[in-house]
C-alpha cells in the first residue's frame, strides 16, 4: 500500500525548530516577567512625576542656547564626524582581513571577525568609560569611544561588501601582475564604493545620536551640559538641550538621506 502523501508546509524538523523557538521565547518572557524587580508604588506615582517634569520644563529656557548649548552641540558634531573618520580608517584594513575572498587564510578571517564582534559588543558608553579612564574627561575620549565602537559595524558591513565583489576585474588585474595596492584601489574600490558611502553615512547618522549621550560619562559634547542641567534640576534648561538635540538629529537624518540619494 502506498500511503496518500499529503502536502505539508513545513517538514517535521522545521516544525520542531519553530516550536523550540516559540517555546523558548515564551519561556524567556514569562521568566523575566516573574522575576523582574518592579516597585508598584513607582508606577502609580508615574503620572504625577511626568506632570511635574513637564511643568518644570516649561517655559523652555531658549535664552540658554547661545551661552550653554551651542558650543557643546558643535563639539558633539565634531566628535561624531572625527570618530566616524577614525573608525573608517581603522575598519578598512580589518575588513580586508575579514573578507574571505581577499584574505585566503581562514585563521586571519576568524581573528578579524573576532575583533569586529568584540568592538561591537562593547557599547559606545562603555568604550567611553575606558577612554575617560585613560585620557581623562573630554572630547578626545568621546571621539575614540565612537571610533572604536564603530569599527565593528563599519568593518562587518564593509567586509560583506568586499565578499560580494565580482571576481572578474580582480582576476584581470592579478593576471596583469598588478601589485596588491593597485588591486585594492582599481579592483575592489570601484565595486564597493557605493556600499562604502552608504555605510559611512549611515554610521555617521548613528554617531550623531550617540555623541549626544557621551557626556554622561564625561566624554565631552552636549551630554555634559545635559547632565549638569539634570543634576541641578534645571529642567527648563534640560528641555532646551533636548530640543536642540532633536533638531540636530533631524537635520542629520535629512542630510544623510539627501546625500545618499546624490552619491548612490
Amino acid at each position: 500500500m502506498n500511503a496518500v502523501r499529503t502536502w505539508e508546509r513545513f517538514s517535521l524538523g522545521e516544525r520542531m525548530a519553530r516550536f523550540t523557538v516559540y517555546f523558548g521565547v515564551v519561556a524567556a518572557i514569562v521568566a523575566s516577567l516573574q522575576t523582574v524587580e518592579v516597585i508598584p508604588e513607582f508606577i502609580t506615582d508615574a503620572p504625577e512625576q511626568v506632570g511635574d517634569m513637564l511643568r518644570r520644563m516649561w517655559p523652555i529656557a531658549w535664552g540658554f542656547y547661545p551661552e550653554g548649548v551651542q558650543e557643546p552641540l558643535l563639539e558633539s558634531l565634531h566628535i561624531a564626524t572625527l570618530g566616524t573618520v577614525l573608525a573608517v580608517l581603522m575598519a578598512v584594513p580589518v575588513a580586508f582581513l575579514a573578507a574571505r575572498n581577499v584574505t585566503r587564510f581562514a585563521w586571519l578571517n576568524h581573528a578579524a571577525k573576532l575583533v569586529l564582534v568584540s568592538a561591537r559588543s562593547v557599547n559606545t558608553l562603555i568604550w567611553a568609560l575606558f577612554f575617560v579612564a585613560v585620557f581623562g574627561p573630554g572630547a578626545l575620549a568621546g571621539m575614540l569611544a565612537i571610533a572604536f565602537h564603530s569599527i565593528g559595524f563599519t568593518g562587518k558591513l564593509l567586509g560583506e561588501a568586499l565578499e560580494e565583489a565580482n571576481r572578474g576585474s580582480i582576476e584581470a588585474l592579478e593576471a596583469s601582475g598588478a601589485p596588491w595596492l593597485a588591486i585594492a584601489i582599481k579592483g575592489y574600490w570601484p565595486q564597493v564604493r557605493p556600499a562604502f558611502w552608504g555605510i559611512v553615512l549611515f554610521r555617521w547618522d548613528i554617531n550623531v545620536r550617540e555623541s549626544a549621550v557621551l557626556g554622561f560619562v564625561g566624554a565631552g559634547g552636549v551630554g555634559m551640559a545635559l547632565d549638569t542641567a539634570l543634576n541641578l534640576f534645571q529642567w527648563e534648561r534640560a528641555a532646551m538641550i533636548l530640543v536642540a538635540i532633536f533638531i540636530v538629529v533631524l537635520i542629520a537624518e535629512i542630510a544623510t538621506t539627501q546625500l545618499r540619494k546624490r552619491i548612490l
Binding site: V38, I43, D45, A46, Q49, L230, L242
Partner: peptide
C-alpha cells in the same frame, strides 16, 4: 527614534524611578 535610548532612559527614571522598569 530621534532620541538615544540613554536620554529616553533618563526621562523614564524621572517618571517611574530608578530600576529595571525605566530601562524596559
Amino acid at each position: 527614534r530621534s532620541f538615544h535610548p540613554v536620554i529616553v532612559a533618563i526621562l523614564f527614571v524621572k517618571a517611574v524611578g530608578f530600576g529595571a522598569l525605566a530601562g524596559i
